[in-house]
Write a protein that binds this DNA or RNA. Structure first.
Length: 103
DNA sequence: CGCTTGACACCGT
DNA sequence: AACGGTGCCAAGC
């Protein structure tokens, strides 16, 4: 299940860093970045899956548990050391990339 | 150049 | 099999 794969990658995100659905999808070797967001949407309650560290490719918070209003995500990131501004994260500073397979 | 909107494709259920 | 939901990309102005 993609869900499980996504969770595994998200779990690998180091604290104080953020990732994008796109990176996760690529790391999985798939282009279903949309499914990543969809999968996290139904698995944010997993204590092993800090989906709050996953943002859009633009650095905008894609939302939390399907709740776009959940500022807790931005606040949570700030607590980890990530500077979040109006829901926008400094990807240039916190964007964490997985090790892509040599394609 | 900057910003916005529309359309598309993918997965899960 | 279809629908829904999400994010990315492109084009247009």
């Amino acid at each position: 299940m993609f869900n499980e794969k996504v969770l595994s990658l998200v779990k690998q995100i180091p604290r104080g860093r953020v990732t994008t659905y796109r990176e996760i999808a690529r790391a999985l070797g798939t282009k279903a970045y949309q499914a990543v967001g969809n999968a996290l949407r139904s698995n944010p309650d997993a204590p092993f899956v800090p989906c709050h560290r996953v943002v859009k490719n633009d650095g905008c918070v894609g939302g939390y548990k399907g709740v776009k209003d959940s500022r807790v995500k931005a606040e949570l990131l700030e607590k980890e050391g990530v500077i979040v501004t109006d829901g926008i994260i400094d990807m240039d500073k916190y964007l964490f990339s997985f090790h892509y397979p040599v394609s």
